[in-house]
Write a protein that binds this DNA or RNA. Structure first.
Length: 494
RNA sequence: GGCGCCAUAGCCAAGUGGUAAGGCAGAGGUCUGCAAAACCUCCACUCCCCAGUUCGAAUCUGGGUGGCGCCUCCA
């Protein structure tokens, strides 16, 4: 089995074969930068980051282009309400987006084109559509004539006449300018106080949809391999992109159309308009949720399925992450003790340099799962099995000072875990639970030893209340006592 | 009204014809004055309901019920 991806266009899982062997061109529909990103966005971009990472790991050279739509009604509106230039709005939220994604360990795109950087190309593209008979100017606007494109609706599985019925009741101030209710704006005439660019049809700005058609062509060419976005972009956004690009170019815009499911709140889609969203930075900063926890939360469902965002789900992901994290830190904590030699082999600390055997069961399970339309919940199973096994051996080393397992076998297990986790973008800081912290604030080691001696004396005198009091005192300082047989008490800082 | 998706343990979630992965939570045991840590073990005769196809169905077909999405800006 090799990689199969669910293609919205064909409504089935298709074998993935790039146009050019070994190379993949991906275009990921980016955000409209008028506000901070929420958890729904996080899921979207994590999903495509995983697709990209998996393709890279499987040996493809991936060019990953993601746009910023930096001109649009909402940006203009926010500029007016905030009394700030629209350029400042888009700059602020583009920067914020990149910050959020970096924290979530989403790889930066190869390039981030902006709509406003390609306005002349957009104008030329629209002219090309007009010349081809696919678009018409109307009172300073330009509209795409959907009836001229016979396969309009092929992506979303709709028919023009059916949609007409649904649209008939709607009031639309553009209606009088359109030939057909489903026609959509390629160019919008500027109103006073709005940003504007020159065009043959008068000053104005690009409509939504057309900027993506143009940026795809400018950055990647006429036909690309993979085009991605949320399920809410299937119609109208991607349908319209197809109509524009394929009318202009007479060849497919993209071979594989991938769409992810929503993040829900109480069963309902998280969205700006419903007001039920949690921003990524709020969750991370005020909610104290580690970025990897959010990532794991997202990956515990297949990307096309809806997921419910609840406190309980985040708490469960938190616990799951700690298990995985301990496994990931195993090599850093115990590698030297197991005689792995950190300097001799650079692959010890650098996942990119690690070479793991692909014939082992965990790796095979992982690949089989990922090949089946990125089945990350299934792919996580072998990771947890590796992590738990390492966690157990780590505990044996801590508590018994030795392990019965073979050092080299552990090393291979650990490297497998690290590499596969990295394919999912799950990474633990090497030093987070590393060497013993040096003399922390609070009690010194000597003070702890003294208290333990006092507790031992109290216990021998059967004064258990005093013994428990000392234990509780230490516990409050983050020190856990472990009573071993023979009256020995070990301790560690948590 | 049109198109489409989903329903598996307390929770999350794999499994698309051969007898229920994994995670979280939970239970019992060893040890222990207690506790914690550690280790060991257990945790869906059943997959929303009804009928059908089949030697065999969570998986296929038909009919219900419940939930959701898109058709308007949206990842």
């Amino acid at each position: 089995m090799s990689l199969h991806l669910y293609n919205t266009l064909t409504r089935r899982k298709d074998l993935f074969e790039p146009l050019e062997p070994g190379k993949v061109k991906m275009y990921c529909c980016g955000v409209t930068v008028y506000d901070y990103s929420h958890v729904g966005h996080a899921r979207n971009y994590i999903a495509w980051d995983v697709v990209r990472r998996y393709l890279l790991w499987r040996g493809y050279a991936v060019t990953f282009v993601q746009n910023f739509t930096d001109i649009d009604d909402k940006i203009i509106k926010r500029s007016h309400t905030d009394h700030l230039p629209w350029q400042q709005i888009t700059q602020t939220f583009s920067d914020a987006y990149l910050e959020d994604m970096a924290r979530l360990n989403v790889m930066p795109a190869t390039r981030y084109p902006k709509a406003t950087d390609v306005v002349p190309q957009i104008v030329a593209f629209i002219q090309q559509l007009i010349d081809g008979g696919y678009a018409y100017a109307s009172e300073g606007d330009v509209y795409y004539a959907v009836e001229r494109f016979p396969s309009y609706g092929k992506l979303s599985g709709r028919k023009l006449d059916q949609m007409e019925a649904g649209a008939s009741g709607r009031v639309d101030d553009e209606a009088t300018k359109k030939h057909h209710p489903m026609d959509f704006a390629l160019w919008k005439a500027a109103k006073p106080g709005e940003p504007e660019w020159e065009s043959p049809w008068g000053n104005g700005r690009p409509g939504w949809h057309v900027e993506c058609s143009v940026m795809v062509r400018e950055e990647l060419g006429k036909t690309i391999d993979i085009h991605t976005g949320g399920q809410d972009l299937v119609f109208p956004h991607h349908e319209n992109e197809i109509a524009q690009s394929e009318a202009a170019q007479h060849q497919p815009l993209a071979r594989y159309w991938l769409h992810n499911g929503f993040v829900n709140i109480g069963g309902e889609k998280m969205s700006k308009s419903l007001g039920n969203f949690t921003m990524i930075r709020t969750l991370l900063d005020e909610g104290g949720v580690e970025p990897m926890v959010l990532r794991l939360f997202v990956l515990q469902a297949q990307y096309r399925k809806p997921i419910d965002f609840t406190d309980g789900a985040i708490a469960a992901a938190q616990n799951s992450w700690h298990t995985l994290q301990e496994g990931l830190q195993f090599g850093h904590r115990f590698g030297n003790a197991l005689g792995w030699g950190s300097d001799a082999d650079p692959s010890l600390g650098d996942p990119a340099a690690m070479r793991i055997a692909e014939e082992t069961a965990p790796v095979r399970q992982f690949i089989t799962a990922m090949d089946d339309d990125l089945n990350t919940p299934l792919a996580l199973a072998p990771l947890f099995e590796l992590a738990k096994a390492l966690q157990k051996e780590g505990n044996r080393l801590v508590h018994e000072g030795k392990t019965l397992a073979d050092g080299e076998a552990l090393r291979h297990q650990w490297q497998t875990l690290v590499v596969l986790s990295q394919v999912l973008g799950l990474e633990a800081a090497a030093d987070a639970a590393g060497s013993t912290p040096e003399e922390p604030e609070g009690l010194t080691d000597a003070a702890v030893e003294t208290l333990i001696q006092q507790r031992r004396a109290a216990k021998q005198a059967k004064n258990f209340a005093e013994g428990d009091r000392i234990r509780d005192t230490l516990n409050a300082q983050g020190i856990t006592l472990i009573d071993k047989p023979g009256g020995v008490t070990e301790w560690h800082r948590s």
